[in-house]
């Protein structure tokens, strides 16, 4: 992976000179582990037929959203694609509500009417959850447009993948975001594959962040498997936006361990490639090594966290199984506000 961090001032990326605190590392560890265990459970429930339709797991990419959420303040907004479970957990939405939406139950964030790809939380400023590849990009710019109109310093995090990066509306949004100095961070989660098509098979312009330069938008490529690198780059991008300098692009070099969706046999890549990434770049193992290596935590502490997370996830699965299906009267509610 040819990732580089262009924000070396923190010195945090290799963990050696890190001045990151124990609490901060433990927070990242906990949040990333929650996403991974949650997604593993979702995969299990899908296999049991409790989750239907499309289900896109975020396993492998946890450092991206956890690192960027660490840069946010109250009022900041986020919007993403259909691979959205991790983003919801990271911004503080409840595991119970997310899991119950996956099972299509009344206790879900959309009361069972949205599903895996369509969850929202006004309270947490999470605006979905979008199933049309790339559509969330101008929407994210629009959320930022509203904040700029109102004159506050909120920032919108607009996540999309390397596949969406080839959609025309992404560049329409870039053009207007820079033209109007919108406070939006375009986060390209480049996991190497748009469903089954690798970046190299879909474009010769593989430096995806670089495309923003044509519109005058600064950007950089970041090691998206390193939560500290993500955090450092995110802070610089946020500062740029809050200062009224317009949009910023972060291309997060990351990797998804599972298929595109539950029904993806992933024949387009080798088992060796996946195993190598897990062994050498895993985001959670990286933080675990930092914690243990620097003597900031011991095995027992981490085991206790693992158990807490497991309990939260198991409870969400129970909640999602026990929550009733929506009442049939819900068929005709919420069509209009």
């Amino acid at each position: 992976m040819a990732a580089k961090s262009t924000t070396p001032d923190t010195g945090a990326t290799d963990g050696k000179k890190s001045n990151v605190s124990k609490d901060e590392l433990l927070k990242y560890y906990r949040e990333m582990l929650l996403i991974r265990r949650f997604e593993e459970k979702a995969g299990q429930l899908y296999g049991m037929g409790l989750i239907g339709g499309f289900c896109h797991l975020y396993i492998g990419q946890e450092a991206v959203v956890v690192g960027l959420e660490a840069c946010t303040k109250e009022g900041d907004k986020r919007v993403t694609s259909y691979r959205d479970h991790g983003h919801m957990l990271a911004c503080g939405m409840e595991a119970n509500g997310v899991m119950a939406e996956l099972t299509g139950r009344e206790g879900g964030y959309s009361r069972g009417k949205g599903g895996s790809m369509h969850m929202f939380s006004r309270e947490k400023h999470f605006y979905g959850g979008h199933g049309i590849v790339g559509a969330q990009v101008p929407i994210g710019a629009g959320l930022a447009f509203a904040d700029r109109y109102k004159g506050n310093d909120n920032v919108t995090f607009t996540y999309f993948g390397d596949g969406a990066a080839n959609q025309g509306q992404v560049y329409e949004a870039y053009n207007m975001a820079e033209l109007w100095d919108l406070p939006v961070i375009f986060v390209i989660e480049n996991n190497g594959y748009a469903m089954g098509t690798s970046v190299k098979r879909s474009t010769k312009s593989t430096s995806l962040y670089g495309r923003g330069l044509a519109y005058g938008i600064p950007g950089e490529q970041v090691d998206g498997m390193d939560v500290l690198a993500v955090k450092a780059a995110g802070e610089a991008a946020v500062a740029h936006c809050r200062a009224g300098k317009g949009p910023y692009i972060l291309e997060m070099m990351t990797y998804r361990y599972r298929g595109h969706s539950m029904s993806d046999p992933a024949k387009y890549r080798t088992r060796e490639e996946v195993e190598k990434m897990k062994a050498e770049k895993d985001a959670i193992e990286h933080v675990r090594d930092l914690l243990l290596g620097a003597g900031l935590a011991n095995e027992d502490e981490l085991k206790a966290i693992d158990k807490q997370i497991k309990d939260v996830v198991n409870a969400s699965a129970e909640f999602a199984k026990e929550s009733p299906e929506p009442s049939v009267s819900e068929l005709y509610t919420d069509i209009y506000a």
Binding site: G140, A141, G142, L143, F145, A146, D147, E172, A173, M176
Partner: peptide
């Protein structure tokens, strides 16, 4: 496509 998407986002933004 771009400005319509931006307008939808702006509507959600208040």
């Amino acid at each position: 496509m771009g400005f319509t998407g931006i307008a939808v986002g702006a509507a959600w933004g208040g």
